[in-house]
Simulated scan of single mutants.
Amino acid sequence: MGVQMRPADGAMALAEMKEFAGFPAATQRYLRRSLDVGLGRDDAMGRWSRDVVEAASIKAQGRIYCRLDHIRDHLPDDSGLDQVEMFFAPLVTISAFDLGQGRITSFAAYRFLYERLIGGGVRPWLPGAFCAAAALPHLHPEKRRALLQSISEAAATAPGWSNRQPCFYPEWVDKIEATLPN
């Protein structure tokens, strides 16, 4: 028997699809690639590398993303500071890598990716990890400014977060030629 979806699930999936569609094409591509690498979907190298530079980036991403299991295992279940170090430092490291690739240009795109890579329970930690990674010196000052300005005050100071799991996980879509009927 299949999984039963409630109407609210369909509405959430549609909202997530609309959000994804609003990201620039390069961001959409990077998010799909990152989900393939981070979730072990398909052959990320074969699907996404267009040249040696991109192949090297995907290999580096795979090495960095090895920390994802550790992050998932150490996701704090409350805001207790005694649990933060084992979780937060690797999250900032992976975040810094992704922001350094230049394809994630906003907090919204970052949040979209990390909710899927780690799960809905990571939401309270994303503003801090994003700000920490976006402020690191490996990014050009203008890039740091643009990233930090992309997080709204509401996102940075939210009084609470949903732990609902995402519904929509974008994947590679093969292009097909449209044929007209004769």
Rank of each mutant, 00 (worst) to 15 (best):
R72L: 02
G128V: 02
E115P: 03
E142V: 11
N163K: 07
N163W: 13
S162Y: 06
L81V: 08
C167M: 14
E177A: 14
L126H: 05
R67T: 00
G102I: 12
G62T: 09
V92A: 04
L147F: 14
G102R: 06
E153T: 13
F112E: 05
D82C: 11
M86G: 15
A156V: 00
R63H: 05
A129K: 09
N163F: 15
L81S: 04
E171I: 09
C66V: 03
L148I: 09
I118H: 04
V92F: 10
H140A: 15
V173A: 08
A178N: 10
A60V: 01
S152P: 05
A134M: 08
F130S: 12
T93F: 00
P76I: 09
Q61K: 13
E142N: 03
S57W: 02
E85C: 08
H74D: 12
A154K: 11
Y65L: 02
G121C: 05
I58L: 11
L81T: 10
V122E: 00
A156D: 10
C167K: 14
I118R: 00
G102V: 07
L147G: 04
R63I: 00
C66W: 07
P141R: 05
A134W: 07
T93M: 03
P76W: 10
R63Y: 00
P166N: 06
S162T: 11
Q165I: 12
Q149G: 12
Q165S: 08
D73H: 12
L99S: 00
G120S: 06
G102L: 14
H138F: 09
A156Q: 07
M86S: 13
V84F: 15
E85D: 13
W125C: 09
A178C: 12
L113V: 00
F112V: 08
H138D: 12
W125L: 03
M86C: 12
R164W: 11
L148M: 09
A129M: 07
E171L: 08
T93P: 01
G120K: 02
Y169S: 03
L68H: 01
